[in-house]
């Protein structure tokens, strides 16, 4: 009898990535607002044209929640609570989800779609990839003006991510739609829609 080594208990069970039959892209931005942490999620086609947009209410953890969730709070908010909810409630499913923060990379463990992130800016560093944490893999692609990252736990997604990005129109820059998402969230706040979602 041969013992098969089990993965460490802390490692997530890597869900097989959904086949990228949809060329659509999902842009998920989660950020801190005055009312708490909230998310905006835009699904576009491969030309970058909007297909669907979803907005979350702002989540403001209270003191007890902050204490009890401890250091897991940020990732929980970004991935399980806001990210996963937004993606699951959106009717148009993407073939690839792009996030703009490292905290949201863990979303990949919650959904069956490859997740890639924009590498954070490091103003003092000439090479943004050099400053990445150990559990993150950095790479570049012509469709993004900033380097891309994915979770090292899901390194096997990379060929699929690159194949999906190759199908994206050349006028699209992956960092640009996040500007639109934030403008839309700002507009929602101005028109009181953000409060309605809450």
């Amino acid at each position: 009898m041969t013992d098969t080594p089990l993965p460490p208990a802390s490692a997530p069970q890597p869900a097989p990535a959904a086949s990228v039959n949809s060329g659509n892209l999902g842009f998920l931005s989660i950020f801190q607002d005055v009312g708490g942490v909230l998310g905006g999620y835009l699904v576009t086609n491969t030309w970058g044209r909007p297909l669907e947009f979803r907005l979350s209410s702002a989540v403001q953890p209270n003191k007890v929640q902050q204490i009890l969730y401890g250091p897991t709070l940020s990732e929980y908010l970004h991935t399980e609570l806001i990210g996963k909810t937004l993606i699951e409630k959106t009717a148009t499913q993407p073939g690839l989800v792009i996030v703009d923060s490292l905290a949201a990379l863990g979303l990949r463990a919650q959904i069956n779609i490859p997740v890639v992130g924009l590498a954070p800016e490091h103003p003092g560093s000439a090479d943004p990839l050099a400053a990445l944490p150990a559990d993150v893999i950095g790479f570049t692609h012509p469709r993004s003006s900033v380097p891309l990252v994915l979770s090292a736990k899901f390194a096997h997604d990379r060929p699929e991510i690159e194949a999906a990005l190759d199908k994206v129109d050349q006028s699209v820059d992956l960092s640009e739609p996040f500007v639109r998402v934030r403008e839309a969230v700002s507009e929602a706040r101005k028109m009181g829609v953000a409060n309605r979602a809450a």
Partner: peptide, 15 residues
């Protein structure tokens, strides 16, 4: 001490 679980609501628009 209050609710421990966190909740979020969403609203969406399809074009």
């Amino acid at each position: 001490l209050g609710r421990l679980e966190l909740n979020v609501q969403t609203e969406g628009w399809k074009f």
